[in-house]
């Protein structure tokens, strides 16, 4: 059991052994995340600054996660296409980090450089209620930072922002059955039974830099 103190690069990448072991309780994570938010909150004087700091915390995590996932999947081939990397983020990254794929990936109708990753039950705001005087604060800034880190690390620089959007009538029920059947894990089932249904979904708006779009368009020719 005891781990010999070897250089970190020589340790196995599999985390702590079998799959079941690489988990902690959701509450432990939530306590820690809430401390992260509070720590930042005590050091800023505006909401946008708080979001920016959460994003920058997530950014470094995103870079590391990209590296970890690609090594683990033995994918030595780099994603070079825009749609592929977005799929990679919304399925593989989401599964590896949040335990389920993102609920949907949409392209903005108005702006071709904008994409939306939608999560109906974002992990970071599970136990979070935003006070009324905090306006548009989205507690999922950390997640958008992770997405930005992954995309940037893969060479697709983008500005990613998190938004909490109120669910429309009927959207919630539909989705709840969807997620529990699609992910099938005890995880989402448990969350559903303990917590009231969410009234908001998280929309991660990904706005790519112009050069990324140019590059992608050039590859189509």
């Amino acid at each position: 059991m005891s781990r010999t103190p070897v250089n970190i690069l020589d340790r196995p990448l599999g985390g702590r052994g079998s799959r079941a072991e690489t988990q902690v309780s959701l509450s432990a994570f939530s306590y820690l995340y809430s401390e992260l938010v509070q720590y930042h909150q005590n050091r800023v004087d505006s909401i946008s600054e708080l979001e920016r700091r959460l994003e920058s915390s997530g950014y470094d995590v995103g870079l590391k996660i990209l590296e970890l996932i690609t090594y683990r999947n033995r994918e030595y081939k780099r994603e070079i296409r825009l749609m592929n990397i977005l799929h990679f983020v919304s399925t593989q990254v989401w599964k590896a980090v949040f335990g389920k794929p993102a609920d949907s990936l949409e392209r903005s109708v108005e702006n071709t450089d904008e994409f939306m990753i939608i999560d109906y039950e974002p992990l970071t705001s599970t136990f979070c209620s935003v006070p009324a005087d905090f306006g548009q604060l989205s507690a999922d800034g950390y997640m958008s930072g992770i997405v930005a880190g992954v995309l940037d690390g893969a060479g697709f620089s983008a500005r990613v922002t998190a938004h909490s959007v109120a669910l429309e009538e009927g959207e919630a029920n539909n989705n709840n059955t969807n997620t529990s059947s699609s992910s099938g894990g005890a995880q989402s089932g448990n969350n559903g039974s303990l917590l009231p249904p969410r009234k908001e979904k998280a929309v991660f708006l990904v706005k790519f830099s112009p050069e990324v779009l140019e590059r992608d368009a050039a590859m189509d020719r």
Partner: peptide, 10 residues
Amino acid sequence: KVPKANAELF
């Protein structure tokens, strides 16, 4: 029984 989260993210 408790809901879980990824330990790596933690």
